[in-house]
Design a protein around this nucleic acid. Sequence first.
DNA 1: AGCTTTAGCTACTACCTATAGCTTATGCTA
DNA 2: TAGCATAAGCTATAGGTAGTAGCTAAAGCT
Lengths: 205, 205
Amino acid sequence: MAVTDRRARRRTETQEEILRISLEVMAADGVAALSMATVARRLGIQPPSLYKYFPSRAAIYDALFEHGQKGYLDAVRQAAEGMEPGLAAMGASLEAGARWIMANQILAQLLFWRPVPGFTPSEQAYAPALAIRRHFAMLVEGAVARGELAPEAAEEEGLALAASLIAGVVSQQLANQPDASYEDGVFMRLVPRLPEVFAGAYPPR
Amino acid sequence: MAVTDRRARRRTETQEEILRISLEVMAADGVAALSMATVARRLGIQPPSLYKYFPSRAAIYDALFEHGQKGYLDAVRQAAEGMEPGLAAMGASLEAGARWIMANQILAQLLFWRPVPGFTPSEQAYAPALAIRRHFAMLVEGAVARGELAPEAAEEEGLALAASLIAGVVSQQLANQPDASYEDGVFMRLVPRLPEVFAGAYPPR
DNA sequence: AGCTTTAGCTACTACCTATAGCTTATGCTA
DNA sequence: TAGCATAAGCTATAGGTAGTAGCTAAAGCT
């Protein structure tokens, strides 16, 4: 309603720039070491002025968390687009997700670990995580329907195993060889094998 | 040499108490939120006096890291003691390790993730991690020798998969349901299945 | 009893997050 | 075009952090 259309747009731009700078600072100093003062200096303003855009340090983490969840969700969805739900689509999603993680390690740490004391994501920021869960559940159900997996694979334990498989290689990669790319990460090489490992745990009858 | 035997003993006791209090503080406020001032207050001394016992905050993390690695190593070794190296011994070690992790979650976060910006374990503190790796490699080799696994399981990729399997369930458990015990952790229920999942990935010919 | 070493202290530096309250600039609206 | 609401910046300040410097007092070996 044109209350202050131009101003609102500039404000949004500034907020986005703050998030971009925050990622740089976290990449340099560690995820939990994000400093409002450093971000403000890089932006060219005084530290207290940053609070005009984000009410607290946790609010920046929350915005980044949501941003990350959406990016990861997009990556895994896009990879399975147009494919029949099944093991092949699951493999494509897993690989795309792993590639996204290696390209967005800082965000991935925020999503997969809990590195920041005192920060827990808001419900809104966490929402895409549920969609990610549903996405993989759908793919596993497809694989069951195609006879590629036993029906138990789509139950709670099976989905927990699927989530653990990818979380495992990602955790090992980020903790032990964080600077590698997807191509040369020792643990990333396991990603293409995960669908068959999962199928080995729930072979169809 | 009795240079100052009694004093040395008291000093060691104080250092141990500092580590104990540090674990309490980390449990309450988060692994990365360890505060020298808080530890000092709980010990009943002024913050600068803490530096007589540990030269820095990172030194406390390092001592805890080494302590944790040794505890975990002990747990997995003891579980396999007296058993023939093989899948069964691997299962026993994995379960004992998982139980230790759920009983020592703060230390586990320090070992399995990298939650503290600016802290990387010293070589000495990291040494038991190599022994843990060798322990599991030995068990996998035993399983290969007994014909329970294909020879490839004992190569780099196989060992990376084994490490990822346990890291995965642990990461998921600690991130999503940290307050559960070993018995009622949703992801911990997967631990007894891990040896067969691993065997499914490297079936003997 | 004397002397060395340790364990504590206070004072301080240089950071940090966050709040309060003021001033200036922006840009919509009458 | 003039006025005015609001946004965006500022400084000052409170209360916290890690770590250093330098002093004093206690402990305990010889």
